[in-house]
Design a protein around this nucleic acid. Sequence first.
DNA 1: CTCGGTCGCCTAAAACCATTAGGCTGTTGC
DNA 2: GCAACAGCCTAATGGTTTTAGGCGACCGAG
Lengths: 204, 204
Amino acid sequence: MVLGNEVVSVARAGVTPERLVQAGAELADEVGFDGVTVSALARRFDVKVPSLYSHVRDSRDLKTRITLYALAELADRAAAALAGRAGRDALIALGTVYRDYAREHPGRYAAARLRLDPRTAATSAGPRHAQLMRAILLGYRLDGADQVHAVRLIGSTFHGYISLELAGGFDHSEPDPQESWERIMDALDALLHNWPAPTPEVAS
Amino acid sequence: MVLGNEVVSVARAGVTPERLVQAGAELADEVGFDGVTVSALARRFDVKVPSLYSHVRDSRDLKTRITLYALAELADRAAAALAGRAGRDALIALGTVYRDYAREHPGRYAAARLRLDPRTAATSAGPRHAQLMRAILLGYRLDGADQVHAVRLIGSTFHGYISLELAGGFDHSEPDPQESWERIMDALDALLHNWPAPTPEVAS
DNA sequence: CTCGGTCGCCTAAAACCATTAGGCTGTTGC
DNA sequence: GCAACAGCCTAATGGTTTTAGGCGACCGAG
């Protein structure tokens, strides 16, 4: 049955897992990752809620897929930004990709922080992120053992800063977050150039 | 009506906001901050759900109170740990307080990260945390402007590391997180001792 | 001592979300 | 042409939040 140009009665809405994930990612950016709900998504597709269960196992499955999508998208951006850069440039480029992505797509960034079960995580873009992080350290001279610690430091600082900024932690204090971000990039760069040896245990 | 020693029929369960918050904090540590629900709390007090609404405005209010509780508890621990310490000792002591608290009370730590509205935040223990963070920098020689950046760096790194460790981000990679933590404390200490000047803008 | 008020809990009910079971209808492949 | 399937639907259950209103127990005043 067709009225005007609108297919009215039993038309297919054209729901696919891919479109669900895409719409879910957009919804996350609008209402937060927690607001991504099967119901909200069904409304967005103008479809009854149970219809989505043919395309997605359950709510958890939906969120996992959005997480994988965000991780891959972010890894793509990171890889593109790192191409042709090394050392300080690479460090800042990578950090800025993460930060910009989080500000542009807060819901997807939150999605990327969802804990995945180990099997899923192994086939996600997670390892690509780790790889890119390690690539940055090639521009600095760090011993093998120190590299892991440095990767963890950089990852922690990136994520911590972005998470605090996004949560509004810097909203009501003085200097522009942008300025702090730049100074922190400077500081990390300096630190990587001059990575300290471990402090020996002090026998009391 | 009394059976044995049990008051059976219409006894008061003795719910108070304080006991709700306390139980809510414990519940958060057991099932995660998201699992803290009015229903779950009512079950724990063996009381019907709507009864809690005389003690707490709504679910949001409950969570806010748990957040305030956690922030205060954490600030107390931090202040105690910082007493009599300066410089590197103070830095490590503060970081370790945060990290230990997060591992001991993951739900409360998550609660402490809840975004508060500005009015509530101003009267929370949040400013105390900021104060303690600034106190650490007294042991290092930093210009006024650099202090804020350094505070933000330290806060970001602490929070980022703890958050990644808690989320299991280091679960399946090589070195012990404890070792990385110590090396990162060393690195932060070295960085604060040798804080870099801002890199000048390079005119293209 | 008793009477009214308040406090602390209750039941009832509406609204939203997740999930399962089962039905109906075009479309597609043989 | 028909059977199977894909894609959507209705119906129903159960959990969560929140509001409205009731009822008994305790407490202070007369």
